[in-house]
């Protein structure tokens, strides 16, 4: 079966003006590749400022006017052109956004769920979808400011799920929720995937992502450095030194930090952006770094763990 979403060598850059007249291209995402299969939850994990929200905006075709996107996007085998993504978004491809601010503050929940339709069928459907997420019929009559954080998030998911999407993109869906509430929210995404949709989960929370994801793409300074199966993490089968560092920094593992900070867009040197912080770097790391397949996953590193040295 064809993957729901294929992203190949995607790059996104912004045009910036400095001092009024000097123009420069600021690359924010470089050479990003990933695939999402039907029935699968694929997580993209990266720290804040790594450019991962832009990936969602790129797929939906809602990047700002001063941005430029290159590479290949395919949805169910067909190229995802700007025209096609406009036709599909909100129906086939849906977004569960980061914040409650994405709801219309002046519109009650019910009409927002129905997207303007007023027929009996739409009403029955919005009621059913609210019920599915544990929200009573009275929720339809509430304005967004009357919802608690957890309720608002469920409304956002309900809005997306009401469309029976082929691809659901969730952008940081759990911050500010306690572990139980976050677990419940993620459970809903798993459910949507189990019913046959592809789910792309974008988050900084590796631990939560691993509870529902089938595979994880790790993002660093605008590049995917590794694509791993979720089971590789606890099994110690990680490939990239950055992924290992992430794993070892979790409180329940080593809680061991590595020095330094992620470089800013436009300030990465040539070659591997992680090299300045990497224990395994050599002079060769400033050159071109190819993506390699190692132990059933993919890694952008010259000296991956578990791979033979060239």
């Amino acid at each position: 079966m064809e993957p729901v979403l294929e992203v190949k060598d995607l790059s996104i850059s912004f045009t910036q003006y400095q001092g009024g007249t000097r123009r420069r291209e600021l690359p924010v995402i470089r050479n990003l590749s990933l695939t999402v299969e039907a029935g699968q939850v694929a997580a993209v994990v990266g720290s804040s400022g790594s450019g991962k929200s832009l990936l969602a905006h790129g797929i939906l075709g809602i990047l700002p006017y001063n941005s430029h996107m290159e590479g290949e996007l395919r949805y169910k085998g067909q190229p995802l052109t700007p025209k096609r993504s406009e036709a599909l978004r909100g129906r086939e491809i849906v977004l569960v956004p980061q914040g409650v601010t994405y709801l219309d503050p002046l519109m009650k929940v019910g009409p927002q769920l129905r997207g303007g339709r007023r027929d009996a069928q739409a009403k029955a459907r919005s009621r059913a979808v609210l019920e599915r997420y544990g929200l009573g019929a009275e929720t339809e009559e509430l304005y967004p400011f009357e919802l608690s954080g957890g309720m608002a998030r469920r409304v956002l998911i309900a809005t997306a799920a009401a469309q029976s999407p082929g691809l659901l993109i969730a952008d940081e869906p759990t911050p500010g929720l306690d572990a139980r509430a976050a677990g419940r929210i993620l459970g809903h995404f798993r459910e949507i995937a189990d019913q046959g949709a592809g789910v792309l989960l974008i988050t900084h929370d590796l631990e939560l992502a691993l509870t529902i994801a089938d595979k994880v793409a790790v993002f660093y300074a605008g590049e995917t450095v590794e694509e791993a199966n979720a089971s590789d993490f606890s099994a110690g089968r990680l490939r990239h030194p950055y992924t290992n560092a992430l794993w070892n920094a979790l409180p329940q593992n080593g809680f061991t930090p590595i020095p330094g900070a992620q470089p800013w867009p436009g300030e990465e040197g040539s070659g591997c952006p992680f090299a300045p912080r990497c224990p395994r770097r050599t002079e060769a790391c400033v050159g071109e770094i190819p993506v390699r397949s190692v132990n059933g996953g993919r890694v952008r590193c010259l000296y991956p763990e578990g791979g033979e040295r060239p």
């Binding site: 720290s47 804040s48 500010g176 900084h204 590796l206 560092a245 920094a249 900070a261």
Partner: peptide, 11 residues
């Protein structure tokens, strides 16, 4: 450190 990645959190 709720909104930070694990490495920054540990640092």
């Amino acid at each position: 450190t709720a909104m930070l990645d694990p490495i920054t959190q540990a640092q």
